[in-house]
Amino acid sequence: YETDHQDYCEVCQQGGEIILCDTCPRAYHMVCLDPDMEKAPEGKWSCPHCEKE
């Protein structure tokens, strides 16, 4: 199925295993987040940009 999420990391602009924000189209590698994540979040997750809003 098609999503509106970007298929690359917002921080480093590379693809790969990325996690998707449930609020906006941004996507991130877990290691590119500050602080980085050990494992993928369970349930709904909002990226740092959305958390600030």
Score class of each variant (00 low, 15 high):
residue 19 I to G: 08
residue 31 V to Q: 09
residue 9 C to Y: 00
residue 29 H to E: 00
residue 36 D to A: 09
residue 16 G to H: 08
residue 36 D to T: 13
residue 18 I to Y: 05
residue 4 D to C: 13
residue 41 P to K: 11
residue 41 P to Y: 12
residue 38 E to A: 05
residue 21 C to L: 00
residue 4 D to Y: 11
residue 30 M to F: 06
residue 45 W to Q: 13
residue 22 D to P: 01
residue 48 P to H: 10
residue 9 C to K: 02
residue 18 I to G: 10
residue 11 V to N: 15
residue 4 D to A: 09
residue 2 E to Y: 15
residue 42 E to T: 13
residue 45 W to Y: 06
residue 49 H to W: 07
residue 49 H to D: 05
residue 53 E to M: 02
residue 17 E to F: 06
residue 11 V to I: 10
residue 34 D to Y: 08
residue 20 L to P: 14
residue 40 A to S: 08
residue 38 E to T: 01
residue 41 P to F: 12
residue 36 D to I: 05
residue 6 Q to V: 04
residue 17 E to I: 06
residue 44 K to N: 03
residue 24 C to L: 00
residue 8 Y to K: 11
residue 5 H to K: 10
residue 27 A to F: 07
residue 28 Y to S: 05
residue 24 C to A: 00
residue 7 D to A: 09
residue 47 C to K: 01
residue 37 M to W: 13
residue 40 A to N: 03
residue 33 L to Y: 11
residue 38 E to G: 10
residue 5 H to F: 10
residue 4 D to S: 08
residue 26 R to C: 02
residue 47 C to R: 00
residue 11 V to W: 11
residue 19 I to F: 03
residue 15 G to K: 10
residue 52 K to G: 06
residue 4 D to E: 13
residue 51 E to A: 11
residue 38 E to K: 05
residue 8 Y to G: 04
residue 35 P to E: 04
residue 36 D to H: 14
residue 23 T to E: 04
residue 35 P to W: 05
residue 17 E to K: 07
residue 13 Q to H: 08
residue 42 E to V: 13
residue 10 E to C: 05
residue 50 C to V: 02
residue 7 D to R: 11
residue 39 K to D: 12
residue 12 C to K: 01
residue 10 E to F: 11
residue 13 Q to S: 11
residue 33 L to I: 04
residue 52 K to H: 15
residue 16 G to K: 12
residue 29 H to V: 00
residue 21 C to G: 01
residue 32 C to F: 00
residue 47 C to A: 01
residue 42 E to G: 08
residue 52 K to S: 14
residue 11 V to L: 14
residue 3 T to C: 14
residue 1 Y to R: 12
residue 17 E to G: 07
residue 47 C to H: 02
residue 25 P to H: 02
residue 53 E to R: 10
residue 1 Y to C: 14
residue 45 W to P: 07
residue 11 V to G: 14
residue 43 G to H: 02
residue 2 E to C: 15
residue 48 P to A: 11
residue 11 V to F: 15
residue 42 E to N: 13
residue 39 K to R: 09
residue 50 C to R: 02
residue 1 Y to A: 15
residue 7 D to V: 06
residue 9 C to Q: 01
residue 20 L to W: 07
residue 32 C to E: 02
residue 20 L to D: 14
residue 12 C to N: 02
residue 9 C to P: 01
residue 27 A to H: 04
residue 23 T to Y: 04
residue 30 M to S: 06
residue 44 K to D: 13
residue 47 C to Y: 01
residue 26 R to I: 11
residue 18 I to D: 10
residue 38 E to H: 09
residue 51 E to Y: 06
residue 27 A to V: 09
residue 16 G to W: 05
residue 32 C to D: 02
residue 46 S to Y: 11
residue 9 C to N: 04
residue 9 C to W: 01
residue 28 Y to E: 02
residue 48 P to S: 12
residue 35 P to S: 14
residue 53 E to I: 04
residue 36 D to C: 06
residue 35 P to A: 11
residue 37 M to D: 03
residue 27 A to Q: 03
residue 43 G to Q: 09
residue 49 H to F: 09
residue 4 D to M: 15
residue 34 D to S: 07
residue 23 T to C: 05
residue 32 C to A: 01
residue 46 S to M: 06
residue 2 E to R: 15
residue 13 Q to F: 10
residue 32 C to V: 02
residue 10 E to K: 10
residue 1 Y to G: 15
residue 40 A to L: 13
residue 5 H to L: 15
residue 7 D to W: 04
residue 20 L to E: 11
residue 1 Y to I: 15
residue 16 G to T: 15
residue 38 E to F: 14
residue 43 G to K: 11
residue 53 E to K: 04
residue 9 C to R: 01
residue 31 V to A: 14
residue 53 E to F: 10
residue 53 E to A: 06
residue 28 Y to I: 04
residue 40 A to W: 08
residue 14 Q to W: 04
residue 25 P to E: 14
residue 43 G to L: 05
residue 39 K to A: 10
residue 26 R to A: 08
residue 52 K to T: 13
residue 31 V to D: 11
residue 5 H to A: 15
residue 16 G to L: 11
residue 37 M to G: 06
residue 50 C to Q: 01
residue 19 I to H: 15
residue 20 L to Q: 11
residue 41 P to W: 03
residue 24 C to Q: 00
residue 23 T to D: 10
residue 53 E to G: 05
residue 47 C to P: 01
residue 51 E to M: 10
residue 6 Q to A: 05
residue 3 T to N: 08
residue 46 S to P: 05
residue 18 I to F: 14
residue 11 V to D: 15
residue 52 K to I: 02
residue 14 Q to M: 12
residue 36 D to Y: 02
residue 8 Y to T: 15
residue 33 L to M: 09
residue 33 L to A: 14
residue 16 G to C: 04
residue 35 P to C: 09
residue 7 D to H: 02
residue 39 K to N: 05
residue 18 I to Q: 07
residue 23 T to K: 06
residue 8 Y to M: 11
residue 31 V to K: 12
residue 33 L to S: 14
residue 26 R to W: 01
residue 14 Q to E: 15
residue 51 E to W: 04
residue 19 I to N: 09
residue 17 E to P: 01
residue 38 E to S: 05
residue 11 V to K: 14
residue 31 V to P: 11
residue 51 E to L: 04
residue 31 V to F: 10
residue 24 C to K: 02
residue 37 M to Q: 08
residue 37 M to K: 05
residue 21 C to P: 00
residue 28 Y to G: 06
residue 9 C to H: 01
residue 1 Y to F: 13
residue 13 Q to W: 05
residue 16 G to D: 15
residue 13 Q to G: 12
residue 33 L to R: 05
residue 23 T to M: 04
residue 44 K to F: 10
residue 27 A to W: 05
residue 36 D to L: 02
residue 39 K to V: 13
residue 20 L to T: 12
residue 27 A to S: 09
residue 42 E to A: 07
residue 4 D to L: 11
residue 35 P to G: 12
residue 20 L to R: 13
residue 14 Q to I: 09
residue 21 C to H: 01
residue 25 P to G: 10
residue 34 D to E: 13
residue 36 D to P: 08
residue 15 G to N: 04
residue 28 Y to W: 13
residue 11 V to T: 14
residue 18 I to V: 07
residue 34 D to M: 06
residue 51 E to S: 08
residue 16 G to I: 09
residue 37 M to Y: 04
residue 34 D to T: 10
residue 30 M to Q: 04
residue 24 C to G: 01
residue 29 H to N: 02
